[in-house]
């Protein structure tokens, strides 16, 4: 039982890249959610619309940093910004944070770290699945809404969002690979 536990340490470069990626993600998220909000007030459709594009940006961030814990930091900061600044809706904080933790846990157990194609697809998919499940049930659990969406609709929405998240992860991986080949990314 003499296992050595490798400690994950984030460098300044990692953190600054994560910070800028979150800013980019926030812009992408705002544009897609505002676009969908103009057409429909339904929450599941907003989550579905933003999942693909947001996951592309997250996957690029994960492909560069590679360390487990990155998704939790992204989830926490994005959650704080969404909960306390704009759109200022508190239930978004537990949703993004739990999504990040779930993705990190899944990738740690299945792949060890981010960087491979499957780890990005799996991580983004898992994060979006948990995020959607929490965001569609948390307002009801807290008592903001009197009626919860039908469980089947919640499950179908979560699966669609997870698939789109995974697809976004794949596209993000391809972009990151191209940038690495071009020498623009390490």
């Amino acid at each position: 039982m003499n296992e050595t536990v490798k400690e994950v340490k984030f460098t300044t470069r990692d953190l600054s890249f994560i910070g800028v990626i979150i800013a980019l993600m926030y812009i992408v998220q705002t544009i897609t959610i505002l676009g969908v909000s103009a057409l429909t007030p339904l929450d599941p459709l907003k989550a579905i619309a933003s999942a693909f594009f947001v996951s592309i940006v997250i996957a690029i961030g994960l492909a560069k940093v590679k360390k487990i814990g990155t998704f939790t930091i992204i989830g926490l900061i994005n959650g704080i910004i969404c909960a306390f600044i704009l759109p200022a809706f508190l239930p978004l904080l537990p949703a993004t944070l739990l999504g990040g933790i779930a993705a990190d846990g899944f990738s740690k157990v299945s792949f060890g770290e981010y960087g491979s194609r499957n780890s990005l697809i799996g991580g983004c998919g898992m994060a979006k699945l948990v995020e959607t499940l929490v965001i569609l049930t948390f307002p009801f659990l807290l008592g903001f809404s009197t009626e919860i969406l039908p469980p089947l609709l919640i499950l179908v929405s979560a699966i669609i969002v997870a698939i789109l998240g995974g697809a976004g992860g794949l596209v993000g991986y391809k972009i990151a690979s191209e940038l690495k080949k071009a020498g623009a990314m390490e």
């Binding site: 953190l15 910070g19 979150i22 800013a23 812009i27 600044i85």
Partner: peptide, 21 residues
Amino acid sequence: TAVTFTMGISLRYIPTLAGEA
């Protein structure tokens, strides 16, 4: 520090990146 530093950067660079785009 990892959280506060990263959050400071995110908040500072949202308008900058929008300008870049």
